[in-house]
């Protein structure tokens, strides 16, 4: 069953001159961990605000747990948890006071739903008297997640919870989400980090107000038929420039230790590459066929759009 259904949602700002969402449609199944992946400014936060009933779309409809986001906004507010991208708790209340406040607003108590937040809360509990405004980034993030969970929501919306967070803390955060998912909570999470796609059941790639593709990660990758090679040499920056100047190159981008080179599929495009690079003065050249990953695919979809 679909827990969240979005149909032809369009939203503009500045009297219609800035398009934030352009005819966006997709649905999220009950119990799914769904990732909305795209850069800042793609439209992710706007979609979250519409689904959490904080913003009204220009056109289109959406439902959350069967309730219409416009007509039944009151019902939705009772059953969703929302963690905005910008820290939005009360800075002049302590950890404990913030949590109690949110529990009370939703007509419950911290004790009643403690089990749900226990694992996260124990990490910040030693500082429960500290004002939220004085917490570090990671602790704020944990408190915000606790506050979003304290009324045991059916659907959890997390807007860029891992932006600016180091790789170790990001890993821990996703492990927490995995366990919340096991409790049956539907989770929609947005992120600019492409590598987090592999942690989601399904993902939507979003860029410039439009959905580029929606599927499982494997499904999205399997559609990408790029003729792709990982290339390296002793002079990586020069190599990037030389690869881009190669006549059979479609595109070439740096990918960590290697450059990813997309070649035209004509017969000699690969055969001529090694002699070309040698003639350009490169040494220790390595060329290897690779399957496209999520960033290759996102880049390709951006260029096709």
């Amino acid at each position: 069953m679909a827990e969240v259904i979005i149909q032809n949602i369009t939203k503009t700002y500045e009297k219609g001159t800035v398009k934030a969402l352009d005819n966006v449609s997709f649905s999220v199944k009950s119990g799914e961990l769904f990732g909305l992946i795209g850069a800042d400014g793609a439209g992710k936060s706007t979609l979250f605000r519409i689904l959490t009933t904080l913003l009204i779309a220009d056109s289109g409809t959406a439902t959350v747990a069967g309730f219409d986001v416009v007509k039944e906004f009151n019902e939705i507010r009772k059953i969703v948890g929302y963690m905005p991208g910008k820290f939005s708790l009360y800075q002049d209340l302590s950890i404990e006071e913030n949590l109690n406040f949110f529990a009370t607003v939703f007509g419950t108590t911290v004790e009643e739903n403690y089990e749900l937040i226990r694992e996260i809360y124990v990490q910040i509990e030693p500082f429960k008297k500290r004002l939220a405004g004085q917490l570090s980034g990671g602790m704020k993030q944990k408190l915000a997640l606790c506050c979003a969970l304290i009324h045991e929501p059916k659907v959890l919306f997390l807007d860029e919870p891992t932006t600016g967070v180091d790789p170790v803390s990001r890993k821990e955060f996703w492990e927490m989400l995995e366990r919340l998912k096991e409790r049956g909570i539907t989770i929609i999470v947005s992120t600019p980090y492409m590598d987090e796609a592999k942690l989601c059941d399904r993902i939507a790639l979003i860029q410039n107000s439009k959905i580029l593709d929606i599927d499982t990660l494997e499904g999205i990758l399997s559609k990408n038929k790029q003729n792709l090679f990982a290339v390296s040499s002793d002079k990586m920056y020069q190599l990037l420039k030389d690869l881009r100047a190669y006549p059979d190159t479609i595109s070439c981008f740096a990918f960590g230790q290697k450059h990813h080179l997309q070649l035209k599929t004509n017969e000699n495009s690969l055969n001529n590459l090694m002699p070309y690079l040698e003639q350009k003065g490169h040494s220790n050249i390595a060329i290897k066929a690779v399957s496209p990953d999520i960033e290759d695919t996102f880049i390709k979809l951006m260029q096709d759009a």
Binding site: A39, T163, P192, Q207, L240, F253, E295, I299
Partner: peptide, 14 residues
């Protein structure tokens, strides 16, 4: 490069 798309991120490194 926090939060930018994969193409812009690479252009930034250029």
């Amino acid at each position: 490069t926090g939060g930018v798309d994969p193409i812009t991120r690479r252009q930034f490194w250029d």
